[in-house]
């Protein structure tokens, strides 16, 4: 995407620079209109944008959460300035500011808020999704390998915004089973 953008920018800059070269111009307004406006303005722009849109829509569609037997369901509740996480497979258990997930399995995070608008963002695992009071949004994340991932709140929410962070710990299968038995790491 960035390479393409650079190419287009370079193309426009070259066209601009060429406008300053000394030359005698034929006063053919019709042809120029056809070249600049229909050819470049309409044709060029629309081709590139159509391709880009098709790409974006397909990728977006593929990122949608699909049902699968493997899926783990967790809940994330935001509040100024902390996160609490609940687990479908471990009812009643709540962790503060740390989300435990199994590695290598899709996880559906049901996100909501009890006060203002927040946003759930674990940059290395997925894009962001807002926590909105009165709504529950579901985000699919998946950690390929066990480890610790930083999570952030990405919607301005007042004075503690900068410090409003959390951790995602992805466990291997054994640790995850231990977590589910309540032997909290």
């Amino acid at each position: 995407m960035f390479a393409g953008a650079t190419l287009i920018l370079a193309f426009v800059l070259v066209l601009l620079a060429l406008a300053f070269r000394p030359r005698s111009v034929p006063p053919d307004e019709r042809g120029q209109t056809r070249f600049w406006i229909i050819g470049l303005g309409l044709g060029f722009s629309m081709t590139i944008l159509a391709a880009l849109l098709a790409y974006g829509l397909t990728v977006g569609e593929r990122l949608l959460p699909r049902d699968s037997a493997e899926t783990v369901a967790v809940r994330a509740v935001a509040e100024r300035w902390s996160w609490s996480f609940g687990y479908e497979e471990l009812p009643g258990h709540v962790t503060e500011n740390v989300l435990h997930i199994p590695a290598g399995r899709p996880v559906d995070v049901a996100i909501t808020s009890v006060d203002v608008v927040h946003s759930f963002w674990v940059p290395r695992l997925a894009g962001k999704l807002d926590a909105i009071p009165g709504h529950v949004n579901v985000l699919r994340i998946e950690a390929d390998a066990p480890g610790t991932y930083d999570g952030l709140t990405a919607e301005f929410n007042g004075e503690g915004y900068e410090e409003h962070e959390f951790l995602v710990i992805a466990h291997d299968e054994a640790d995850w089973q231990a977590f589910l038995r309540g032997e909290a790491p």
């Binding site: 066209l15 601009l16 406008a19 470049l40 303005g41 722009s45």
Partner: peptide, 15 residues
């Protein structure tokens, strides 16, 4: 697209 049309119309004007 209409933004592109304008930008190219301007460059075309310069040409």
């Amino acid at each position: 697209v209409p933004t592109g049309v304008q930008v190219f119309a301007w460059i075309g004007t310069m040409w």
